[in-house]
């Protein structure tokens, strides 16, 4: 039974907070990639040509149904062999973004499909041009459904960032591990990391639920 040492916690906190900053960066940058790439998938999947939809749906299903950790290893070890060398954080952001884009694609699809058929019909009956139908009628309504769901995936991504430690990104878990490797005391670093995750993700999810109540009527 070891004794919890607040002094030790105080010593390691600066390093951990630095790790937290990297974690937050990875989450936010990963989200941007996921939001953009997901939209690409979603629009490609609405294509009338099956020469587009088939390959895209296979890629999306494949990425969605295989472990992010293995995808990260793939990017980390394989890309340099193809002459694409990135620093670990960039590789991690690409991995997170790619993986979660297969989820956001589904969010966009459901958001668009969730707009009632009658809205399309009404837009047609008013002879609204296609572009106008999308920007003035469909997307604003889809937006309300999409935003909270995207937010939930940002939180999920946040909780997946510790995987980046495996490809040497100096985020929270990596920091905790390297501290423990020198002090041989795992209790405080890992406990503090766990607490930091809850302290950030729980209030964020409460905020999202409040936002959702306002947006989804």
């Amino acid at each position: 039974m070891n004794n919890w040492s607040w002094e030790y916690v105080g010593d390691i906190l600066p390093d951990l907070l630095h790790g937290l900053w990297i974690t937050v960066q990875a989450t936010l940058l990963g989200s941007l990639v996921a939001f953009a790439l997901g939209l690409v998938w979603a629009l490609a999947l609405r294509s009338p040509s099956r020469w587009v939809t088939w390959p895209v749906s296979i890629v999306v299903e494949f990425v969605r149904n295989t472990p992010l950790l293995v995808q990260l290893f793939f990017l980390f070890f394989v890309l340099p062999g193809w002459g694409l060398t990135f620093d670990p954080l960039t590789t991690g952001v690409i991995g997170l973004g790619l993986h979660y884009s297969t989820y956001t694609a589904e969010v966009y699809r459901a958001g668009i499909d969730g707009v009632p058929e009658g809205q399309w019909e009404a837009a047609t009956a008013l002879s609204l041009p296609r572009r106008r139908t999308w920007t003035a009628v469909i997307l604003p309504q889809a937006f309300r459904r999409v935003v909270p769901a995207l937010g939930n995936y940002v939180i999920a991504m946040f909780k997946d960032t510790p995987m980046l430690a495996a490809i040497t990104v100096a985020e929270l878990l990596f920091q905790a591990n390297s501290i423990s490797a020198t002090t041989f005391d795992y209790m405080e670093p890992i406990t503090v990391v766990g607490v930091l995750f809850i302290v950030i993700s729980y209030p964020t999810s409460l905020l999202l639920r409040a936002l959702e109540r306002r947006l989804v009527r």
Partner: peptide, 19 residues
């Protein structure tokens, strides 16, 4: 739901033995 599964796993594997 607020915890990261990997952090939890590390905690159970590395920190819990200390208890």
């Amino acid at each position: 739901r607020g915890t990261s599964a990997l952090v939890l796993m590390f905690w159970l594997f590395f920190a819990l033995p200390l208890l």
